[in-house]
Design a protein around this nucleic acid. Sequence first.
DNA 1: GTTAATGCAAACGCTTTGCAGTACA
DNA 2: TGTACTGCAAAGCGTTTGCATTAAC
Lengths: 168, 168
Amino acid sequence: MTQQNRNSPAPASAERGGHAEGPRKAADEKQVFLDYLARQNLKLTRQREAVVNEIFRDSGHFEAEEIVQRLRNNRVRVSRATVYRTLELLKECQLVEQHNFGTAQSYYEHVHLGEHHDHLICTQCGNVIEFYNQRLEDVQQEICSNFGFEETHHSLRIFGVCSKCRQS
Amino acid sequence: MTQQNRNSPAPASAERGGHAEGPRKAADEKQVFLDYLARQNLKLTRQREAVVNEIFRDSGHFEAEEIVQRLRNNRVRVSRATVYRTLELLKECQLVEQHNFGTAQSYYEHVHLGEHHDHLICTQCGNVIEFYNQRLEDVQQEICSNFGFEETHHSLRIFGVCSKCRQS
DNA sequence: GTTAATGCAAACGCTTTGCAGTACA
DNA sequence: TGTACTGCAAAGCGTTTGCATTAAC
């Protein structure tokens, strides 16, 4: 469902995708989350930890319901409500982003510390291609600066037909 | 709620915003819609026409419900269902775009023939600033071409704090 | 006259919430 | 032991849909 690509200088590790990120990095991310909980006087529950671990195992896009199912397949029962509540926390510490690709539900995405990318979305097969382009980021920076606007984050979605679908 | 801005060569008329577009242009757009109906063997009903006129009167962002209310204030009763169905048609002939700005509901926008812009969204006051930047478009074009991707449309949303909110 | 459109209200699907019971710190 | 968290089921909310009626062509 998701491809990984970079067509410009990669600002961080290049081995993204699948389960390939190094153990140190995942540990760092988990620490960010733990620190956040501590700072807010929140508790690390069995369920919260299970959800976070499941999300950190991978770097693709997923739906909330998918996490419920993946955990259930592993014999871990966590309610939908708790998954949504945990996603909210992860968004707050910028470890997860929420996307809308034109359908009713939201897609979430595990974002690695400080990394960012945008999306090409094939409206025929639903495939989502990720890319990062430094020039694009620079131009956006400049636009914000022109408007005296202080960016926190952005989302660029390019819709169209991917190369595979164009061939068939 | 919405500002209009261009910080790059304007590809079309500069007097956009408010109710300022010329009568010729509005007529052209209506013709596009009428042609579309004819081509698809669809009918121009009283309700459909009322919805389209109401949308073409203005160029800001709006919610579906807002159209229902604006018409009702003018003593024109059109059901929510019909408004949604008409918006669908307008999207199909590219006279309206659908956006998600991070809240539950969709925002729609009357887009003028062949024009396009992106959005800066202030997460503090909710203000939406429109902009167009040719360099940005060029870079996107290039990215698509690198991926063999055929773009139909795109949406860039930059979230952050606008200059007014930064001052206060 | 035929075909498509409308309005209503019910259905939908994702997400959120109130609340009583549970578990972390 | 106190406070936060969980699960459940119900509610919310924007949006879509089935169906009987109405209107365009």
